[in-house]
Write a protein that binds this DNA or RNA. Structure first.
Length: 506
RNA sequence: GGGGGCGUAGCUCAGUCGGUAGAGCAACGGCCUUUUAAGCCGUGGGUCGAAGGUUCAAGUCCUUCCGCCCUCACCA
């Protein structure tokens, strides 16, 4: 009962070891065939390559290696498919071509990893086939694979046993190949703009750069608590102070918060900072990046996500936060404290003890965000809710900040970076006075010191890579773009030994 | 944390009004040299997520618990 993960009786899947397969391991050994040999014979050719050259290469000899599919047995002839990382193709085993192997043919079965040497040809119906002249078992599979036609559907089993999901549902692998290509293309984009890719600490002594509860850990030798980073922001801006001028980091951040279709406690963030730029520059960068991803990776600007279609051809509309606020709240002014308060109460989002700006922002999130399918830049946020953003030269109440919405989700956050050390220090100290558990408990004075040396005007960007991939790949849940999403661990228990297994069966 | 849904064979799923636990694929034993969800003959396989309760009788009804999914809340 492998997918009855919930039953409280220890390791859940050992029962899947198939007794007949264990016996076949013994038979193999008796016949002098290693079930888990160290060496792979020949040099396997990727199946995709074999198939691509079939017209000119028919009759040539190839080694291919991969996982064996279901066997179709005709007595003196057996067909199966073989799948490797690049694709799948048919192999044909004929008694007359495999006199030595033939008595052992039934020791090889679906799920085993094998290498096959043989001549590339076709069947009577034209199916490209390698007619084996050598068959070498590389790894015996002890568990029954999921059903050939439906694959593995049970979502919990798919996430917990992604290794099975990947080989039994080939389209899953495609999502992760897409992920790899998108990230490579992001790097190429920033590299070509002269950005330097950097790696900054993940263990922080003061969590900062975002508002979120951190994970706490402990360093034994120093005997101090450390925090897994909630954002790389403050370190990256130190590099701007240091004169690196254009830097980006793609890395994991950790937030000790809820899990949902849009949230995983660890996720991948892109952050970039560019000196002598402002948030307008950054909007151009985002458009350039998305345009490039569409052209070079997807081959289209039209994407489908959660039953809706989006066009990612730039430019994207820019809408002012204040205007959107009024638009979806009957013309109510963001700055009308009493009106906003009443509206929050009416919506049921009013919480006591919050600043007027935060109340207003809750109203914004309740009334405006559901309508932001995007792509759209929401620009010019009230400065009071943007502690790391620079105020507009024209209007000191407005911060030069934008958030990017796409697919109804907040995908990115960016601003003209606040580089006034006095202003920054005051804002940090206000945060510390606030007893909100998500605000830092300590001012990062070292970061303030960095600003005191002088940080050039800069535009910074943060994009949630996983959410971006959800939209680009059309997967509605963040778990489908994470190879190993966080699930509650199974109850620990004694894993039965194989001997126990056998005696259980008898 | 609230609400809703789900959990039955290795996998995918049925299971009516409470009345002996089902199918397809997979597995096991055979036959077959052109199949590709191969076909044909035969066989085995279940603590129905767990515990408790109601009942003559529970996969089915009730309670509690476990896990997963969706949703709301939360979420720079």
């Amino acid at each position: 009962m492998p997918t009855n993960f919930s039953q409280n009786r220890g390791y859940p899947v050992t029962k899947q070891i198939h007794p007949d397969r264990l016996k076949r391991v013994e038979t193999l050994k008796e016949r002098g065939i290693a079930p888990f040999p160290a060496r792979t014979p020949g040099e396997p050719t990727p199946i995709q390559e074999v198939l691509a050259g079939i017209e000119e290469n028919e009759g040539k000899i190839y080694w291919v290696a991969g996982r064996l599919g279901q066997v179709r047995d005709f007595g003196k002839l057996r067909f199966s498919h073989l799948r490797d990382r690049s694709g799948a193709m048919q192999i044909g085993l004929q008694r007359d071509k495999l006199p030595d192997f033939w008595p052992n043919r039934k020791l090889l079965e679906v799920g085993d990893i094998v290498a096959i040497q043989g001549e590339l040809g076709r069947t009577k119906k034209g199916e490209p086939t390698i007619w084996a002249t050598e068959v070498v078992l590389l790894t015996k599979s002890l568990r029954l694979p999921p059903e050939k036609w439906h694959g593995l559907k049970d979502v919990e089993a798919r996430y917990r046993m992604r290794y099975v999901d990947l080989f039994s549902n080939p389209e899953v692998r495609d999502s992760f190949i897409l992920r790899s290509r998108v990230i490579r293309e992001i790097r190429a984009y920033f590299d070509e703009l002269g950005y330097i890719e950097v790696e900054t600490p993940i263990l922080h002594s003061i969590p900062g750069g975002a508002l979120a509860r951190p994970f706490i850990t402990h360093h034994n030798t120093l005997d101090i608590d450390l925090y897994l980073r909630i954002a790389p922001e403050l370190y990256l801006k130190r590099l701007i102070v240091g004169g690196m001028e254009r830097v980006y980091e793609i890395g994991r951040v950790f937030r000790n918060e809820g899990i949902s279709t849009r949230h995983n406690p660890e996720f991948t963030m892109l952050e970039s900072y560019e000196a002598y730029a402002d948030y307008n520059t950054v909007m151009n960068r985002v458009e350039g990046l998305f345009d490039r991803l569409c052209k070079n990776v997807l081959g289209t600007h039209e994407i489908h996500f959660r039953e809706k279609t989006y066009n990612l051809k730039p430019p994207y509309p820019k809408k002012k936060y204040i205007d959107l606020f009024a638009e979806y709240n009957d013309g109510l002014s963001y700055f009308d404290e009493e009106g906003v308060r009443a509206r929050a109460k009416e919506l049921g989002v009013l919480k006591e003890g919050l600043s007027p700006e935060k109340i207003a922002n809750d109203v914004f999130e309740a009334t405006v965000e559901p309508h932001l399918d995007g792509p759209v830049f929401v620009i010019d946020y009230p400065k009071a809710i943007c502690p790391l953003s620079k105020a507009s030269d024209e209007d000191p109440k407005i911060a030069e900040r934008f958030e990017l919405f796409l697919g109804g989700m907040e995908l990115g956050n960016a601003f003209s970076e606040l580089n006034d050390p006095v202003d920054q220090e005051q804002r940090f100290e206000e945060q510390v006075r606030d007893k909100d558990p998500e605000t830092p408990g300590e001012v990062d004075y070292d970061y303030v010191a960095a600003l005191e040396y002088g940080m050039p005007p800069a535009g910074g960007l943060g994009i949630g890579i996983d959410r971006l991939l959800m939209v680009l790949s059309g997967n509605p849940s963040i778990r489908d773009v994470l190879l190993f999403p966080l699930l509650r661990p199974l109850p620990s228990g004694e894993e039965p030994t194989l001997e126990t297994e056998e005696s259980d069966k008898s």
